[in-house]
Amino acid sequence: MNPLGREELFSAFLDGELTTKEAKFVNEILAGEEEAMEEFHGIQQVRKALRMLPDLEIPGWLLPDGHLGEQLSSYLDGELSAAEQRRVSDHVIGCADCRAELHDLDRARIAVRSLPGVETGQFDQIPVIPRSRRRRAVAVGSIGIAAAVAVILGLAFGGQQQPTISLDDLTTQHIARASAEPGFAVFPAGIEISAP
């Protein structure tokens, strides 16, 4: 067997791809030849490094139940790269849920802008969760959002009497969310917001 052919057995040996007979042959080579042993260790080291490469997380929106979520807001705001933008368009065309979400989000933005008596500067007072923390902060964030909604409605309706407005309607929820967190578009199931 030529040297390269012999060497090839080292990789196949490490991968468990040899017959018993071939594996025995490799064992004999390694026991008898120091140079072969060194070569074998080198290959072993490379193989280990390759297998230690981190198993990267797939972006959630690529999976069937992974809708676009907060990417939709960035999309509306023109914050995405060209490649991301194209992917969002492709997904929205094929996904009724995200289309509806995008539509709601867009309406909510328009509605917020047209709220009477609210100057855009006042929104600066509302704390915004930093982008990277947002996903984890969703559950906790809903309380803050409810508070933010109260603030916005308070501003909008004069602030004297407590507004008794039910926020069950999705558009209103979106107004609240889109206002409190400009990049926020996910509406997790099971969270209900209602004003006191």
């Binding site: 090839e8 080292f10 196949a12 290959i43 490094a49």
Partner: peptide, 12 residues
């Protein structure tokens, strides 16, 4: 078999 081995050898 040959490609895997030669690939690893190059990486080394």
């Amino acid at each position: 078999r040959s490609r895997i081995h030669r690939g690893r050898k190059m990486l080394r």
